[in-house]
Design a protein around this nucleic acid. Structure first.
Lengths: 131, 131
DNA sequence: ACATATTGCGTGTATATACACGTAACTTCT
DNA sequence: AGAAGTTACGTGTATATACACGCAATATGT
């Protein structure tokens, strides 16, 4: 009787998310928001649809998550190529959060690697990508 | 520059959850609900607090998820030891879902093992438990 | 040009999840 | 017995997430 891979994944996901959330709390965002900001930064200005593909999230999910970031004034919506397309851009405040959050994010990242060891960390990365 | 373990986990979690959800669709529950039913089965009648500890979920989350199962008539609430405690039990319909869902769940489980290989599957299990 | 198809987005609806807070019930201490 | 603390639970609020649907804008085919 093997453990359910899905449940193991979901539990680990919740636990680890909690670690990153706590670490990032000082800059006022959670892991999901920090990651979304990073994805925006890598391709700004970016449409919501493109952002959804990059993050592997449903477009409507991205739409709502971006709206929260907008309310926090970390990003701003601009006009895209089309009238229908809207382009997300970081605000100065958003860039600051990314700068301030980077070492916090790195701390958790390093802590996980220290806990698992280098080899196991690499294995984990490979396995998660293979799923 | 390493990948964010949390994001890798969350993405894998969403992808894999989706696999199980699709497989379980014929019996009318998703993976989270199926898993919750299984946890109830293992310890019924069980209080919401105990169920929360078993599933590593917040009590309020369990409370709400159980409420959905109750509306689907897969579980029923009975009186616990106390007046404050409520005990969750499976209904016949709930047991049937567990029976019918088992082979569907097993199919995904086997498919994942086939994809990763036995050794990698065992590694994955160990790594996820270590996190 | 006009009808049709596609694209990009928002909203409605639903589950999953957590934290904070309040309430009722039980326990413990004096 | 009565006060104080603990336990079990529900609800309010908020984010995360997906699917279905509809609308507006653009592209395409005749």
């Amino acid at each position: 009787m093997s453990y359910c891979y899905c449940i193991l994944l979901r539990k680990a996901s919740r636990r680890v998310t909690s670690l990153y959330d706590e670490a990032l709390a000082p800059v006022g965002v959670n892991l999901a928001q920090f990651s979304l900001l990073r994805n925006i930064q890598r391709a700004e200005p970016i449409s919501l649809t493109d952002l959804g593909q990059r993050t592997e999230l449903d477009r409507s999910t991205v739409s709502r998550n971006v709206k929260v970031l907008e309310k926090m004034e970390l990003v701003a919506m601009a006009n895209g190529q089309d009238q229908r397309e809207s382009a997300v851009e970081l605000s100065d405040k958003g860039r600051q959060v990314l700068r301030d959050g980077a070492p916090l994010w790195d701390g958790v990242q390093t802590a996980i690697e220290a806990k698992l060891g280098d080899e196991a960390s690499a294995q984990l990365t490979a396995l998660l990508q293979a799923l």
